[in-house]
Write a protein that binds this DNA or RNA. Structure first.
Lengths: 233, 233
DNA sequence: ACAAAAGTGTTGTTACTACACCCATGG
DNA sequence: CCATGGGTGTAGTAACAACACTTTTGT
């Protein structure tokens, strides 16, 4: 078994870490928080934050604990498990499984992050370590799907927002043009967003003041559960 | 750390197993293959087949290897990862993570299974061991969602089928009435099924001979990718 | 008055559901 | 010729996209 000789010879059970792809819309682009590795393997490449479990801890609590060192946990508005990667050669010379999470941070917050971490646009990733590039792209696909049939936008939008702002968030995450007009009607009819009654003052060039909205809940709800084959009645 | 004292005191990293909820439509009901435990804990309760990884093996290959001892692997038409369960007390006295898979066996096959395993209707589960009852129900929800927006029916239907037969499969998995008329049009328009040109002879009571269909591919394809918020044009 | 930004009304389309009706076979 | 099971035709509908139009502001 040559590939286990360096570190793990004799080991009968794999190591296990939790990772997170933390997304935020920054500068009108979907970005992910990456950490620049200081050690081999993959020194200088960018990797997802995470680390090992300690006893009596779930994977979810573990990734939240590790994230607390990179980004304030209270700022992660949504966290969900993506899957577990188990290719034997995903980590050179080390048998390690990784369970990856998708984390979302609302727009407008600027978390204090350590100097060796940086936000990177998901559609322009740098060289990534291990299989982390694949994981980031998988996380984006999960997010794109859920934007369509759930209220997950609450975790990317700021607490209150105009519809133009919400459209910008959706466009950044989906990667194509979205109509604010129709987005409003979809989310209102589903009961996902509600008007606050406030208005946002227009910019220096004038314009009608925008209504201010908020998401009704800050927990994931599937608002359009079945695409087709709905139950009768 | 009282809960780790029996087996794992001093262990710094969790054990890991792969499990599978293998579903098949039998007697017009969605059923799952369960194994009756002969040992404590949960002696006499029913559990999902699976087991530990060996070095140089992915989770997927591991669960296929374990299933080969319960049900012929070639009969599993579809396999996908559901998630990893990590509650510290999910296994009494033992720190163990479990990655669960959904497996589907086409209708009509009757795999030879060992005497300590049995098929159980998913909507009438017996007492289950560990968190396996939760996993089975989660697997059913995953299946129900995918039946709606993908061609996953190929893995539950027999190789060729009439539309009445396919409707029965969908009804068993979804748990509500489905119209064969409309099911046909949905799956034909999406290009998921195609007519073979053959016909099925009617039963003793007569009736028009049924057209015979097949699924075009035996690989999962998302046939209705976005419920709403489709890309423009 | 006019440009800018936001909101509303309306039409058309698609992809379904529901149901009436028609077709082919066995007894 | 009728019961049985399968297939087709068609109307109704919900949820959306597209776009013209209206409203409210700043200069």
């Amino acid at each position: 078994m040559p590939q286990f000789s360096t570190v793990d010879s004799g080991r009968h059970s794999p190591a296990h870490i939790a990772l997170a792809a933390v997304f935020q819309v920054r500068d009108a682009r979907l970005q992910v928080l990456l950490w620049e590795r200081g050690r081999e393997p993959f020194r200088g490449a960018w990797s997802l934050p995470g680390g090992t479990l300690v006893p009596n801890e779930t994977l979810e609590r573990s990734i939240l604990r590790h994230l607390a060192m990179k980004v304030d946990v209270r700022e992660v508005a949504h966290l969900e498990q993506l899957g577990t990667w188990s290719e034997p050669d995903r980590h050179p010379g080390h048998w390690e499984l990784a369970t990856a999470y998708l984390g979302l941070v609302p727009r407008g917050i600027d978390p204090r992050v350590p100097p060796d971490t940086r936000w990177h646009a998901v559609d322009d990733l740098p060289a990534t370590a291990f299989d982390h590039g694949t994981i980031v792209l998988g996380a984006r696909e999960r997010l794109r799907g859920k934007l369509s049939y759930s209220n997950i936008g609450f975790a990317l939008a700021s607490e209150t927002f105009t519809l133009a702002e919400l459209r910008d968030v959706y466009e950044a995450a989906l990667g194509y043009d979205v109509s604010a007009t129709n987005l409003k009607r979809i989310l209102l009819r589903r009961g996902a967003i509600e008007a606050t009654g406030e208005r946002r003052a227009p910019g220096p060039a004038g314009g009608r003041p925008a209504e201010v909205f908020r998401f009704g809940t800050t927990r994931l709800e599937v608002t359009d559960p079945f695409a087709v084959l709905r139950p009768p009645m």
